[in-house]
Each structure stands twice: as C-alpha cells, then as structure tokens.
Design a protein around this nucleic acid. Sequence first.
DNA 1: GGGTGTTATCTTTTT
DNA 2: GATAACACCC
Length: 735
Amino acid sequence: MATRTRPSWLDQLNPEQQQVVLHAHGPLLVLAGAGSGKTRALTCRIAHLISVRGVDPHGILALTFTNRAAREMKHRVQELCGPEADGVFAGTFHSFGARFLRRHAPRVGRTNGFTIYDDDDQLRLLKRLLKAAGLGDRSVAPAEARRLVERTRRGMDPDAMNLPPGLQPAALRTLLDRYQAALDVANALDFGDLILRPAEALEADPAFCARIQAQRPWVLVDEYQDTDAVQERLLGALAPAGGDLMVVGDDDQAIYVWRGAQVDNILGFQERRPGSTVVRLERNYRSTAAILSAADGVIGRNRNRLGKRLLPTLGAGEPVEVAECQDGRDEARQVISAVSRAIRTEDAAPSDFAIFYRTNAQSRTFEDALRSRGLPYEVVGGVRFYDRAEVKDVLAYARLAINRNDGVACLRILNTPARGIGKKARGDVLAAAADGSPWDGVLAMAATSGRAGKAVTGFAALIDRLAELAQTLPPSQALAGICDESGYADMLRDRQAADPTARDRLDNLQELLAAAADHEEAREEATLASFLEAAALHTDVDNWDPAHGRVTLMTLHTAKGLEFKRVFLTGMEENLFPLARGGAVVDVEEERRLAYVGITRARRRLILSWARRRMIHGETRVCTPSRFLREIPPSALKTQLSPVESATAEHLARRSHRPPPDPFSDADFIDYDPDYDAQDSFVPALGARVAHAVFGEGEVVEHLGGHGPKTRVAVLFPARGVKRIVASYLTPVQT
DNA sequence: GGGTGTTATCTTTTT
DNA sequence: GATAACACCC
C-alpha cells in the first residue's frame, strides 16, 4: 500500500479513535457515547482513507439522518483533505435513495422525473382512498392507515397485525394495492419508497447489486441506533457481509423506536456480520463531570442497554440546578431571567443557550417571554417551513406543472384559490378519472359544457400556462410566476383586511422565492424539479446555525447531535416528561434515553425546570416532578429536592435507589423486582408479538405462571430460540 | 358554489 | 389551545 505521510491530526486522537481511523478492512461497529468525538473519528477515517490509503473518494458513501449532519461531515472532511473530498457522497438515507432512484428509475417502474410524496401528501392520498373505500368516516383514521402502510413496508403481514375494528386484513390489502396503484399512476414515491425501492432493486438483480457495491465499497453510517428494518435491508444490499461497512451509534441515544427504528440493528450487528471489529468510545470531551454524572445517573436506570461508561476529561464544573416553578409562565420567566442575567453578568452570548422541551406546544410561553425581553431567539422544528399550507399550495402548482399525473397536487389546488370547482364538480372530476389520475378527470370534465366544465377548462389552461413558465424560467422566477398567474398572491392580498395571518403567508411566499434563488446559487443545474426535491427532503434543523447568534428553542428529538454551552431542560414533570399517552407512559426507557440525549447536549451548565401546575389541553393540571429528576445523583445537584417533592414522588424515589439488573447476565431467567417500573409492565396474551431489547422481536408461546407483571412467559425469538422471560421485560409490538 | 361561524376533536417526537 | 370537519346562510 502506498502510504503517504502520517497526518499530524492523527496524533490528536485518543487510542480508540485512532483504532477507528486506522481500521483496515471488514465490518466495524463503533459504540460511541455522547460527546465522545464520534463525528471526529468518522470524518478522520474518511480523510485517512482518501489522503493516506489513496482510496477514490467516489468509492465512499456516508449516510446520516439529517442534511445538516451530512453537510457538517463533508465540511470537516474537506478541512482535513481538501477538495478531494468532493467526490465523497455524504447525505441522508433519503437523499441517497432519491439520487439512486433518479439514476435507476426504470428498475422501480418510474421515470426519473418522479415526484416525492411527503408525509402530508401520503396522508391526503390515503384519506381519499379510505373515503372511496367507504372507510372514510372515523372507522379508520388516515394517520392510522399510514402507520399500517409503514408497518407493511417494514415487512409485516396484514394478517399478523392488530388492526382497528373497522378494518379487515383483506380490506387493508386492497387499500395497500390501491395506494400503490395511485403512486404508480402519479409517477410518485413516498418517503418510505426512497429507501425500500433501492433495496428491492438491488436485491432483485445480483449482478447490478455487485456493480453498485464495487462502485462504492466504503459505507459509513452515523446514528446507526436509529435505523429501521428497511434501512438495514438497504445496508445489507449496499455492503456485502464481510464488506467495509462502518456503523457508529449509541444504543442509549435510540429515540426513534416509536417510529420503527430497531435497536436490534446495533445490538445484533456482530452476529449478523461475523468477524466484525468493535470499538467503544467512552471518553467524553464535551461536558463537565457534574453533567456526565447526572446523565449517567439517569441512563443507568435503563435495563435494556449494552452499558457504556462516560469518562470525564473535564473538571467537575458547576453543579446541575433544578428550578421549581409555579406554572408554565413562571417557568418561562425564570428561564429567561437566568439567560438574561448570564448575558449581562457572565459574558454569555445568546447562542450559548438552548431551551429544550418534550413537546412543541411548550415552545410558545418561552417565545413570548423571549420576545418581551427583546432577546434574539430561534425556534427550530415544529411546523416545517415547507409544510405551511401556502407554501405547499404554491409548490403543488409547480408539481402539477411538471407532472400532470401528480394527483395529490392536482386535488390540493383544484379550487385554491376558489374558481368555481366546488364539492360537486370535484366529485365529478374524481368520478371521471376512475382509476386514472385526477388529471384525466380534469381533461374529461373540460370537454363537457356547463358551468363546471367551463371552470375546469380554465384550470387546465392555467396549468398549461404554468408548465410553460416552469420550462423556460429559473425556479425562483417560475415560482413567482405561479404566485401571480394562479391568483394565489391576489387571494392573500384580498384577505389581508379580514385575516391577520394573510400578511405572514405572503411573507412566507417571498421567503419561498428567496429559498429558490438560494437553491439556484448552490446548484449548478438548478431546476424547479431539483428545488422540489430539496424542499421535500429538507428539515428545519438543516438551516440552524449557532452563528445566527440566537437562543435556540427545540424539542429534545431535534437536539440530538447538537451541543450547547448552557442547556435548559424544561417541563420536567411526570406525564409530560416522561410523556404519558392515555394516562400511561408508553415506553419509559425511550423517554429516559431522550432525557439522556438532552442532558448530554450541555457542555458547561445544565438547569432542569419543572412547574407545579401546567396548562395541558386547555386545562390547568397539578404536576409532580419527573422521576428523572430523582434519578440524578444528589452529589451532582446544587440544591437537594424538597421533601414535598419527594412525598409526591415517593414511589419513584424508592425505586430509583435500586440498581437495575444486568440484561446481559448469562442467567436464562431474569429475576424480577416488583417495585421497579411495575406500572409500565404488561401481560402479553399467548401468540402476541412482543419485543425484548436484547433478543429482538418474538412471539409469546407459553405462560409459565406468576401474577400481573410478574408473569413469566416463554417467547420464541426467530434468531435466538425460546427464552423464558418475565413479562415486565417485554414491550408490546404494535400491530 | 362559496364563505362564515360553530363545534368537535385531539393534542409527541420526523427522515 | 389550536385546528379541522361540519353546518348554515348568502
């Protein structure tokens, strides 16, 4: 091997990081605790492959979950080895899938101009299909239908699912078929397709698959703990068993299990890829020892984890603080006062601060408080810019101009602004379309005389004119033309007197045009189509930049992967965090991992707040402090929690002093502590699908006795055989 | 057919 | 508290 000079940055890495960078060949699993420099190890490895081992950058594929993470990774590789890094593909799973499919569209029955249906598009389509199937009214909620679609994508069988009362497996199959057919007619693919279809295309043609593998033999995956079954399938196709696949993850930061991520991917990696190397990164370079102690105290309560240390490299730092507040407004007041005080007296900058919360609804009180104090702030997440109704409407015109068969787009703007195509005419259009696209219905209706026919003719002519714009003008000008020609901008202008939001909506359209202009700057060959794809795959955090110099407000989920000097973790109350649904906490361990993610974002200062009363769903509720507060070692806290709090959370305090059993002990049978999380356990029925964090998913084959959460059951795990387990260690698999 | 007002519903996290 | 579906009136 032609070894070039040993780069100086290699010496700045710790031995484990060096091991990652220098790893020669074969599968590599990196278990990286929070703040352990995993991105550094990842980027240095890529740089090392290129500049020392002489690997062709085009042979490197780095997959992440957000565009922001991908951009940052690429940027850092460029810093290390210069413009050579340009050849590396660093992108999200979805952007990789989209790019792959543009190139190989015919393999999945599409043309390369296919449209991407986002969540909202998917929901609208399902809603229409449900209505057409007579399941429209409350028997099957569209969101439920979407979950079922996603579940079948991950390989589940409708017959094995727990379906809502109004839906038979056969009806679900029909629905799925119609959904698929509608996507086919529309030349559209939904988010799930962007990953599933490439996997299927590769699996279907071994020679093709081998060619792709040879093109990009180096595959690196970040945040591996959040991959789902389909993503794992894609990775299986992209990297052969003994191939150079590197995955980096932290089972303690798995916060998307609710969305189908399977922690089993990371837990079972070594088994699936024999001969793999495992490296643990446990030295933390981000946070003070006090913050790490808090993080460790909380995550240590989880039973289902591989178990990692967080070794501090910094001093103890300031103790972690807990702020008790009277209500949500008081909480906002206290938090913002602390921010403002630190800026005044401690030379802190607004961008040092992050305010985290469990649900988006909590952001408002903080926004109000920040605004009245005149502090610059930025809310990241919530309603995505590209999900705002007016933005989606205008983009729907663009989509329809490019692709007349985009049914969701067509129906969305058929009568927006109002042009005389009401409920009746809309029904006629759909009837005329039959199994074809709604546009076929539009053309059929346009051929009729009468009032509706005339209106529809006008609509068809409008779309033809817009198509002309779309073909001849750059994206920003084409969109400007759409706002004008369609009458959409006029509609908003007319509404300004009556509707105070109309002004904001007009501003949003201006912002859309600006975003399109930015896109033109950034891409060599910017087209309206490429802008639409970027818009569909864009996330809110992609734009976030500490250089904006603002206080950052975001949910804990959005915070993953980021770090801040000073962090406020707010709403630390039972039922809010951990969040309860329908009166019960669904998965405490996942909530706890979320708390762990939040705590470990903080570099220097961490303040947790809780309110005695809080408005929830429009009514004031009395709250008790989160059990997670109790789980922080008292030695890491500035002030001890008051006795009142411990009285209200007595049972939580009691259980929190018991060490969790080791989930990896060799004992075939795991002992049960009745006080521990009893309220979160359930007793699965015979034949029920259940999940175990270590063994994965299985089926209950026998009841072995015991009562309530103590019930012991035998579970058949496809990969591991039959295990006898106490029910409380199992979670139901939603079907 | 369209626009307005009312009611009902449901509130998590998102590539 | 906010939004969406719904009913009613023009």
